[in-house]
Each structure stands twice: as structure tokens, then as C-alpha cells.
Amino acid sequence: MARAFVFPGQGSQDVGMGRALAETFPAAREVFDEVDDALGQKLSAIMWDGPKETLTLTENAQPALMAVSMAVVRVLEREKGVKLAESAKFVAGHSLGEYSALAAAGAFSLADAARLLKLRGQAMQAAVPVGQGAMVALLGVGLDVAEKVAAEAAQGEVCQVANDNEPTQVVLSGAKSAIDRVAEVGKAHGVRRAVPLPVSAPFHCALMQPAADAMAEALANVTISVPVVPVVANVIASAVTDPNEIRRLLVEQVTGTVRWRECVGYLAGNGVTDVFELGSGKVLAGLAKRIEKSLEAMSLGTPEDIEAAAPKLA
């Protein structure tokens, strides 16, 4: 049995996430305290008590989701004797989850990951004035059709594939006026539904270039170590271990497509049989089983999840 640990992205946040971990495991509490100290804010209070609108702000949601993922990692390592380097063949994360994956694999310190994600959230929010960008999920079609819909809806504006999540779910991102045209254009291409996403900015498209520039500057000043296991990078859907390549791909990721369907395919194609999603929510476990029917997938986000999974990871 070969395992991969995967880490969720934005949208999996919820008020109360991580509280039970902190109350049950000292190792988890330590992670939340470290993140609070690194950011100079009581992020854990926002995570556990809300309000939801404050937690959902990109600059809070990104480090918060990483903190929950790292709390699970720390509990597994400190309290269950599960060493990532021995237990996982690969790690991967969806968008911001790639930072969680890198921190879990020792490429980033916890404090650096928290500060980078805070900045990433701020930079992404500032890149496009509120109301000028949007994102929409296309249901019932795959990447080829989604690319045609994006090209037709663009009409000279930015409209591109942001997330290739699974064979029948692709997210487009770009200028609001272009995204507004997607539903009508999609009808002619067999799109079952076009669902506008409740996001504050158009992530993973060319409009995010100012955020990519900000991350290039920030990442240039951060130490990246060789990860203890290879990281499957979003924008190339294959494994990397070289710190300079990791740095370059994280910058590209801001404006590039999250090729999650292909990332999961890469895992399965390289011998992975079991996927464990570490952190808040169950989105990636669900996607894994829809992308590759052969995969077993479990989510670990609560003390009960950890207790259930620990024997399988021993």
C-alpha cells in the first residue's frame, strides 16, 4: 500500500474548525499558538468563534486552513508515531493547500508558511478591485469543453480555466463581464450547470499577476528546504523536490491552472493506492474517488478521524 497525504484549499473553512483538535491534543494546540505568534494576531479565535465573514476573508482563510492541516500532521507525528517521511510516498495540496503540503514535508517552517499565506491572501485580494472579477464552476463537462467555453466567453477579456477539479467539474476565472457570459455560452457546449462561486477575487487567472509578483518577492526571501517526500505541484501535475523549482512553481500557481484532476492521476499512476486528506472538510477525498475509482480515500480533520485512521497509518 502506497499513500499520499493531500491538503485542502479555500472553501473548506468553517467556524469551529480545529477547536476539537486543540482541546484534545497538546500538539495541535501548539500549532495554533505558533501560527498566532507568527502572524501577530489571534487567528485561532477567528477560526473557533468567527464571525464567518472574517474567517472567510482570503487573508484569514488561507493561513487558517494550513494551520488545521498542520495540526493534524503534528498530532499524527507527535502523538500517534506516524512519520510523514515513512508513511507517505507523495504529498499534494489544492491551491493554498500546496503550502500546507510543503510545510508538512518540511520544505517550509510553520511560521513561514503562515506568513506567506497571509501575504498571499492579501495580495490576491488587492490584485483586482472588488466586483471586477468572478469565478464560475462548470458542471457536467471536462477540461476540453471548458477551454472552448472560456475562449468564447472571453471576447477579449480574461477568462481561463482556474481549477480542473475532476472529469465533470472545471472552474473558470476572469473578468466579471466575461464570467457573466459563461452560462449562456456553456448551453451550446453541453454544460449542465454553471454555478457562480462566492469568492472575493478571480483566483488562478492572469488578473492575479500583481499577486504573483508579490509572492515572487516574498518567496525569494524565504528558506525552502528539500521536502522529505516529493510534492506533486499544481501547475505541472508532477512531483518536485528541488527548492528553486518549488519556488518558481508557487509563483506560477498564482496565475496558473490548478491541475488537480491530473495531480490525482499522477498519484495513482505512480503507485498510490490510498489518499488521506489532512485538514478541514472532505472535498479532496471525494474528488479523489471520482477521479480515480481505484483509490481509497479518507479525511482526517477531527480527533475521531485521527483515531480511526491511526491504525491504517501505523
Rank of each mutant, 00 (worst) to 15 (best):
V191L: 12
Q253C: 02
A239F: 08
A268M: 03
R261A: 14
G190Q: 10
E307G: 11
E184I: 04
H204Y: 07
H204E: 08
F203P: 12
E184G: 07
I291A: 03
G269E: 08
K187H: 05
I179N: 04
L300Q: 03
N234T: 01
S294V: 13
E304F: 07
H204F: 08
A216F: 03
F203S: 15
L219N: 10
R248G: 09
A211P: 03
V199P: 14
L287C: 05
V195E: 12
P303F: 08
M208T: 00
P210W: 00
V240I: 07
A239Y: 07
G174A: 10
L267C: 01
I246G: 06
L313E: 05
P227W: 04
I179D: 00
V283D: 09
G301D: 02
A239K: 05
S280I: 05
V232E: 02
I246T: 09
M298W: 15
E277F: 03
V226C: 13
T257R: 01
I179M: 09
G190A: 11
C263S: 15
G186S: 08
T241Y: 08
V229A: 05
V228T: 14
A211I: 02
V283N: 08
N244E: 15
K293Y: 10
I179Q: 05
P311L: 13
L249T: 06
A310L: 12
I224H: 10
V199S: 13
E252W: 01
G301H: 06
S294A: 15
M215V: 06
V231S: 13
V258T: 04
G269W: 06
F276G: 02
E262I: 02
R247Y: 12
V251S: 07
A175I: 07
T255L: 01
D213C: 09
A268L: 02
A216H: 10
N270Y: 02
P210F: 02
R259P: 00
V275C: 01
V191I: 11
N221M: 12
K176L: 07
V283A: 14
V222C: 11
D305I: 10
V231G: 07
A206T: 01
A175C: 11
A188M: 11
K282A: 10
M208L: 05
F203L: 11
V232C: 08
S299V: 08
A216L: 07
A194P: 06
A212V: 00
K289Q: 14
V283W: 03
A297F: 04
P227Y: 06
V195D: 12
V275R: 03
V235H: 04
L197N: 13
A212G: 00
V258F: 01
D213R: 11
A233M: 15
K312S: 13
E245P: 05
V191E: 12
V191C: 10
L313Q: 05
G286S: 08
A309K: 07
G286R: 04
V232T: 05
D274W: 03
L249M: 06
I306K: 11
A206P: 03
K312C: 11
V232H: 01
K289R: 15
T255Y: 00
V264G: 00
S200M: 12
E292V: 15
G279E: 09
M298F: 14
G271P: 00
V264M: 02
T302C: 08
H189P: 09
E304L: 10
N244S: 14
V191Q: 09
V182T: 11
P230S: 04
R193I: 03
E184A: 14
S280D: 08
A201R: 04
I291Q: 02
L278S: 07
Q253F: 03
G190H: 12
I291G: 00
